[in-house]
Amino acid sequence: MIFRGTAWTLGDHIDTDLIIPARYLVTADPAVLAPKCFEDLDPALAAKIAPGDILVAGENFGQGSSREHAPIALKGLGIACVIAKSYARIFYRNAFNIGLPLLECQDLQAVTRSGDRLAVDNDAGRIINETRGTSHQAAPLPEFMQRLVAAGGIIAYTRQKVTARAGGG
């Protein structure tokens, strides 16, 4: 899938408390969580992000708590995908499980400014910063993650697994 969106840049080690503060974790409703995203980082940011926009971040995006509410809130904001240098492991699993695409790219953040227009070919991992005229390559998805994404996340994957077993037995 190829899509275009506006970039919002963030730094290193963006933690899940910054993505969605714990005080709002009394619901998992994306529509309720979305406007609270990044409230403690920049209270005005969530309102500026439009559906289809892309987050561009540094190292260790999503560190901290296991709250699946973090990728759910980002999806609720309409974030098309996150492109970071690296991800914390629980956030990484959670995002794929709920269908928020993540790309790993080392050299995009340094050249990108908030407001830049990006074109992303999710399958090929090609990223073009149209504003700066630069092109970038994301790391290929590990094979198992591809299978998980193809299945539609861990829940669909598990449903297929238990159905196959029930059929086989």
Binding site: E68, I90, N94, N97, I98, I154, I155, Y157, T158, V162
Partner: peptide, 12 residues
């Protein structure tokens, strides 16, 4: 793990 992974673990 997150909630979805936990759901899979609880189920299987």
């Amino acid at each position: 793990v997150g909630s979805s992974d936990l759901a899979a673990a609880m189920a299987t």
